[in-house]
């Protein structure tokens, strides 16, 4: 070892280019992150008899519990059950982008250290795993919506909504992965933040007109991201302003993610 210095070394321009190229290669390696993501979810339940069915059962139990308390949160909504079955998984998706995104690179340390595959694969893999989890949670929605008869033609609107959340998810993983490796308190902080936002965002409570116009909802980015997916799921049209704001949030997150990832990439391995 030699020559201690106290300044972070400057990063050469071609290194930035390499990092950007690496993200593209990672996004295109769908076969790798797709299988790894499914494996992540299966691995979580490897030693259980019910396996990933636990995800679906847990969700059903949670929805049933909240439904029993429906008079507190949604006295007037006749389709509260569908609302919950659409809302909770979608919230879970958004929250896992933030929480798992912060841990995505730290968790993959062993593989990052051992194999020269594009590091961003581990970020994309965590986003894909969130969707695999989401698919398990949506099973409850399908059952409930069929039972309540709330499946509507507006459901097609869910596709662009999911695309927006996907852009947000990839952006969040690229942004929070390197930051979470550099700053170890980001993981716990984001888990705490997600818990707080779960209560503040209209996830399990149905907002009235007055609440929608309150700053807590109006300036809450998660509200817009949630709404673009949830509204079509419960048979409602998404307001154009909500589309616009959600898209802008997703694009801003992706831009921030690209900037942070490209700048931090060369140093991240050392901080893992």
């Amino acid at each position: 070892m030699t020559a201690h210095s106290t300044r972070a070394p400057a990063v050469a321009a071609h290194t930035l280019q390499n990092s950007l190229h690496e993200i593209l290669r990672a996004l295109m390696s769908w076969r790798i992150w797709g299988i790894a993501a499914m494996d992540d979810i299966a691995g979580r339940y490897r030693r259980t008899i019910l396996g990933p069915l636990w995800i679906t059962l847990g969700q059903a139990g949670f929805i049933a519990g909240l439904y029993l308390l429906r008079e507190k949160f949604a006295a007037s909504n006749p389709h509260y059950l569908t609302y919950l079955a659409a809302s909770l998984p979608t919230w879970g998706l958004l929250a896992s982008f933030v929480v798992d995104g912060s841990n995505s690179l730290v968790k993959a340390k062993g593989f990052i250290d051992a194999y020269p595959i594009p590091m961003a694969i581990h970020s994309v893999r965590s986003v894909a795993a969130s969707y695999v989890n989401y698919a398990h949670l949506l099973v409850v929605y399908v059952v409930v919506a069929a039972f309540e008869g709330t499946i509507h033609v507006a459901l097609v609107g869910v596709a662009p909504g999911l695309l927006i959340t996907m852009v947000f998810g990839v952006g969040a993983a690229l942004l929070l992965g390197p930051l979470g490796a550099r700053f170890r308190d980001l993981g716990p902080a984001s888990a705490m933040g997600a818990g707080l936002m779960f209560v503040l965002t209209p996830v399990f409570w149905v907002p009235g007109r007055q609440q929608i116009e309150s700053p807590l909802v109006m300036y809450n980015p998660f509200y817009y991201l949630l709404e673009v997916v949830r509204a079509p799921l419960i048979g409602e049209a998404v307001a154009p302003l909500v589309w616009l704001i959600a898209s802008l949030i997703a694009l801003a997150t992706l831009t921030a993610g690209l900037i942070v990832y490209v700048r931090m990439r060369p140093q991240v391995v050392y901080w893992l």
Partner: peptide
């Protein structure tokens, strides 16, 4: 696995490695 903080690396061919940690 590490990108150089200065200088350049040029590689032709695929890389296989057995490094610490094993992954």
């Amino acid at each position: 696995i590490i990108q150089p903080t200065a200088g350049e690396r040029h590689v032709v061919g695929s890389v296989g490695c057995v490094l610490g940690g094993f992954g």
